[in-house]
Design a protein around this nucleic acid. Structure first.
Lengths: 107, 107
DNA sequence: CTAACTACCTTGCATTGTCAAGTACTAAAT
DNA sequence: ATTTAGTACTTGACAATGCAAGGTAGTTAG
């Protein structure tokens, strides 16, 4: 897969995921990987950034299957960021798809 | 617009454009800008890279409206790269759109 | 007890795009 | 004749994002 396409979209995918339900980092790696290949070294720094920007809050919970889990919960600010990004993505991908379709036509 | 979305897609848009007809750099800046905001400092280095990778060939032509224009012409290799990128983009954007749609549903 | 899995985090690197500036040619306005 | 605006290309310092590879540590199964 073309790794460049991912740029910026990962933030959207993570926001969409955490918006559905609180999630911890490792879980997100698995969830996000269903859509696009992604690696821990990408997700953890991203989660930190999104938390710093107040899109997420965090809390710890013990697990019976390993070390404690740090859960991420979306904030109100995070939800507005999500909407913003979702709209931007839609506009962007539509416009790219349109451009490709147009040029396929006249051949 | 989210500038990160652009990463990797610009190459696709440029390939699509030059595949339609030979174009010079400045013309491409204008053409590509119809789809995504872009500036000269992005396009020219990209054209150089794509030429180095043998996706494009170039030739010069004089202009009555300014300095000579360097035209870019797609190669056979460039066409296969175009197909590759187009398919990858389709798969990628479909999968992202699907993921967003799925999560919109259960609300 | 040790391997395997869960869970988290960090550092250095590569790639790609941005900004800002500079060069140079042509044509129209002053 | 000189300035201005538009066309056209180039470069270098910079920022953002993702990846690879490594580290720490708790839990469970063999």
């Amino acid at each position: 897969m073309n790794s460049q396409f991912k740029k910026g979209v990962l933030e959207l995918i993570v926001l969409v995921s955490v918006n559905k339900k609180d999630m911890y980092g490792y879980e997100l790696v698995l969830e996000v990987s269903k859509v696009v290949d992604v690696n821990e070294g990408t997700i953890y720094p991203l989660l930190k950034r999104l938390t710093n920007e107040n899109y997420f809050e965090t809390y710890l919970m013990e697990s019976t299957e390993g070390p404690s889990r740090k859960y991420y919960k979306i904030t109100v600010l995070g939800q507005s960021r999500l909407k913003e990004l979702k709209d931007a993505w839609k506009e962007f991908s539509d416009s790219v798809n349109n451009f490709i379709k147009e040029s396929d036509k006249d051949e």
